[in-house]
């Protein structure tokens, strides 16, 4: 945002600091608490609403002979179910919904910036969507969900005794390492997604500052589209592997 009268007042580092900073949109006051709602939280609510509406509309009138939209949805759900069953065996159907939700939400979250209206020729876009996984709080939330699922599923499926046994197998001195895994896994999951998206975002900002035409759309194919997709896949895949490790 260049102010009138001071064109190009922002240096590149100021621009990037502005772009990666997370702004508070509004504050909810409830129960004597002031809860600040950041732009990433707002964006994630919007994505949730869109996904919820889409899944409700697409599954409202299922037919024996599928329509075109139903075929797409059936393909996606079938893919997720097959993926879960392949990695988790007969427990797959219990986890397919959770893993599929993470997968679809992260794809939506990473690809959301592509829906920013295009500005230019003196037209300022009314809003700019920045990748919401540049906020470590969003990715950390997902990582906590995953590790709680891993812990609870291990406890329920193996039983308390089996779970305790798995902590000291193959040898008793493995216990501290097994316990440490419950910290390291979510931290690395959260940091991987956050770091990748933020890194790609900063690189795109640098490229746009250096050369605003021609180059950004080409490189955005890699940094925004490909990287976002791959990271969503990696996150969902690693969650599946962690769950599989916990329940076998």
């Amino acid at each position: 945002m260049v102010e009138a009268g001071a064109p190009e007042a922002m240096s590149i580092s100021e621009r990037i600091t502005e772009a990666i900073s997370i702004k508070t949109v509004f504050t909810i006051r409830a129960f004597g608490l002031a809860i600040p709602i950041s732009d990433t939280i707002l964006a994630s609510w919007i994505i949730m609403a869109v996904l919820f509406l889409a899944s409700w509309l697409l599954t409202r009138r299922l037919k024996e002979i599928p329509t075109r939209a139903q075929t797409l949805v059936e393909g996606l759900v079938g893919f997720i179910n097959d993926f879960a069953e392949e990695n988790l065996g007969h427990h797959g159907k219990h986890f397919a919904a959770f893993l599929g939700t993470i997968f679809i939400f992260l794809i939506a979250a990473n690809l959301a910036p592509l829906f920013t209206p295009v500005g230019g020729f003196g037209y300022e876009p009314p809003f700019i969507i920045r990748p919401l996984t540049r906020d470590i709080n969003i990715t950390a939330g997902f990582a906590v969900c995953v590790i709680v699922t891993v812990f609870v599923s291990g406890l329920v499926i193996k039983g308390p005794a089996g779970f305790a046994k798995s902590l000291v197998s193959p040898m008793a001195f493995m216990l501290p390492f097994k316990l440490m895994e419950y910290i390291i896994k979510p931290v690395s999951l959260a940091l991987r997604l956050f770091g990748n998206i933020l890194g790609a975002f900063i690189i795109m900002q640098l490229i746009e500052a250096a050369m605003p035409v021609v180059l950004p759309p080409i490189l955005a194919m890699y940094f925004d589209l490909f990287d976002g997709l791959i990271q969503a896949v990696v996150f969902a895949f690693l969650s599946t592997v962690y769950v599989a490790e916990a329940i076998e």
């Binding site: 690395s188 940091l191 991987r192 770091g195 990748n196 933020l198 890194g199 990696v234 895949f237 690693l238």
Partner: peptide, 11 residues
């Protein structure tokens, strides 16, 4: 994903 983690920690 595991190999990349070190680079992410550096970042």
């Amino acid at each position: 994903a595991l190999a990349e983690a070190t680079a992410i920690y550096g970042l």
